[in-house]
Design a protein around this nucleic acid. Structure first.
Lengths: 139, 139
DNA sequence: CCGCATCCACTATGATACTG
DNA sequence: CAGTATCATAGTGGATGCGG
């Protein structure tokens, strides 16, 4: 079965002109997955969603304290990306002192569910993966 | 501090907490999900696994032709990483001309299943995500 | 034919200082 | 408090040539 998938590769090269590609895949649209993975596959999005899912809502610095090692900048960037895709809602209170709260949207909680499911699988397969890594010796 | 997350959805019910996944927050940093995501979340691993899953076995250049835009280097790197984690098996035929075939292991097919599940969800949510991106104005 | 090594561009990330 | 701006750095990915 042939599947035509969107190819959102951002190459400055003229090769990016071909925006649609046709790939023989067993009926699975590969690109949405890739697209989503590109969002949550970065260093901090996963952790951010997980932590947001663990509370009703969190303020910027609360979130920052809960995610060890994240910089102010990366938290800002990550939150904006997640908000841009509709996973996170941002509420600004025009007060003094300023207050901004973030919480998962329905879409974000749906994503959280997927991540947790993936987590279950990962935890399940971890021994096998670890074993393979030790065996292979490749790095 | 610990965080409980429902498998299916986000729940705060303490009584049902026994059946939920309880994860130490500090452990999020080293969470298996994050680890797996770091592997398949890169630019090519996902496509490679999907294409390998769509065939019994594939040779290096067959794979290369099926993945539009991948460079020789990245295919090599990706395949090595996947083989290192036991998702892909590499078979070298010491012939002339040389022949190397790759196929998914049981672990790899398990991963494929997860990716397909994630793909179903992604395809399902794609309209919502697209709508959010257009609406959001944030970039 | 397979794929490794080298060089190079780009991007993601991090540290720090400044602003509304 | 909640960012934004700027600079510095490391890792990723692409192009090309060589080796097995």
């Amino acid at each position: 079965m042939q599947v035509t998938i969107a190819h959102s590769q951002h190459t400055k090269n003229a090769a990016a002109a071909k925006k649609l590609i046709t790939v023989p895949v067993d009926g699975f649209t590969a690109c949405p997955v890739r697209d989503v993975l590109a969002r949550i596959g970065d260093k901090w999005s996963l952790l951010t969603v997980l932590h947001l899912g663990s509370a009703e809502q969190l303020r910027f610095n609360e979130l920052r304290q809960r995610i060890p090692g994240i910089s102010q900048r990366m938290l800002t960037v990550t939150l904006r990306a997640l908000a841009h895709d509709g996973f996170v809602a941002r509420t600004v209170f025009a007060e003094v002192p300023p207050r901004v709260e973030y919480h998962l949207t329905a879409l974000g909680q749906s994503l959280l569910g997927q991540l947790v499911a993936l987590g279950s699988w990962a935890a399940d397969q971890l021994p096998a993966i670890t074993a393979a890594r030790q065996q292979g010796g490749l790095s």
